[in-house]
Nucleic acid binder design. Sequence first.
RNA 1: GCGCCGGUGGUAGAGCGGUCAAUUACAACAGACUGUAAAUCUGUCGCCCUAUGGGCUCCGUAGGUUCAAAUCCUACCCGGCGCA
Length: 429
Amino acid sequence: MKFTIQAKVANSLARAGSIETPHGIIETPAFIPVGTKATVKSVATDVVREKVGADAVLANTYHLYLQPGDEIIKKAGGLGKFMNWSGPTFTDSGGFQAFSLGTVKGRGKKIADKNNQEPRDNNQKETPVESDTESMLAKIDDDGVTFKSIIDGSEHRFTPERSIQIQHNIAADIIFAFDECATPGADYEYQKKAVERTRVWAERCLKEHKELRAKRYEVREAEVLSPGSYLLPPALFGIVQGGRHEDLRRKSAQDIGAMDFDGFGIGGSFDKDDIGTAVKWVCEELPEDKPRHLLGIGEPIDLILGVANGIDTFDCVAPTRLARTGAAYIYPTVGLVDAEGKKKSRINLLNAEYKDDFSPLDPDCGCDTCKNYSRAYIAHLFRAKEMLGATLLSVHNLHFLVHLVKRLRTAIVEGKFEEAKGKMLEDFS
RNA sequence: GCGCCGGUGGUAGAGCGGUCAAUUACAACAGACUGUAAAUCUGUCGCCCUAUGGGCUCCGUAGGUUCAAAUCCUACCCGGCGCA
């Protein structure tokens, strides 16, 4: 993997560049669609590539390990070959699942509201990560995480080494270290503990990765499973944690940044209104010459602030999840306003007002969905529970975010970033 | 014409003397969703109000029994089935 910085913004952490992988180039900054189970939900790979315009996709180690199993993916010739995605691929390590499965069902939230530290949803209460509530499907300890399968309830154990081994089998181009993502509800002491655990695990991941990589080079010739399908050793990204605490974030970034990783992921819980700040602390500490991925963040405003503060790649489930529940991003200048007169940046197609609205989702959007289908038609598909609705909205939402970041990239390259950023922040405010 | 069964809120369909403004599902209306246990979850869903409380109307229609009826009785109207 090779990372090149093409343009930098003066007095800013923002930069544009490219990540070269064995399966192609990612022009950064870039939004990477999530395909947890080796599929970007409801969207075929040729559409992700050609209609959405994405350079890469990100899948999940935990889910693919459970189903179909990493050995099957290895046998298929690696993740990309298996899912018919010829471009670059990422896998998340499964560390996040220790958090999302380690909280009571439906309650794990990594984004906290800055103004009240209560979880945002009224009917949600935070549960400490190490609590042993019956309904929890993951328990973490200093050596690793014990998971109950979300498929059949069977028990499985992930350690940093195991995660790396599985990720080598799945064979994405870029893989992540096994980390601990603490909930926003965790106190400072716990966050500190999570940072330390993540540091120790990062070293273990790196060691395992280097051993596997050395072995892989030796047997590389034998791993040619079919024409064009080499299981090349992946690049490994370390993960920075630290919640919403500046000292912990900087410390974690220094620790992880000093290790021999190919790039870095920034994970963990954030304050809703403070993502940009936390990212800045971290990117100020990380080595400049390696790529930085902001894990699981992708609301438009967060993308703008992320790029401004030095992020190269993002992934997020929001565009596809929102799409499946009937919501579409729209650019605020479209002119729709909510009850309080605030510019809308999202519409819910299931609202009665769209039943006979024959305009496109976003008239200024160039995506296939907006060029060919109306709000009323998509609203009808959702009401009729036709699955094409989810597909059309997913294509639009993904296109929306991918191209939002592409516009930021172009602005950086053309030396007009501050201007573009200012305009966008104003639009989305 | 006779006999039996049934008529419940937008729909289907529970309830069969008080705890019923009425279970549940669907529909409808709104909200949530940030490294996907998510094609999911939450709330509202007779009307009105000085609204974690109060008032009014309500289970085909009209009477009746009862302290109390969607629930029991009578008549009528409507639907289904059976016999003529």
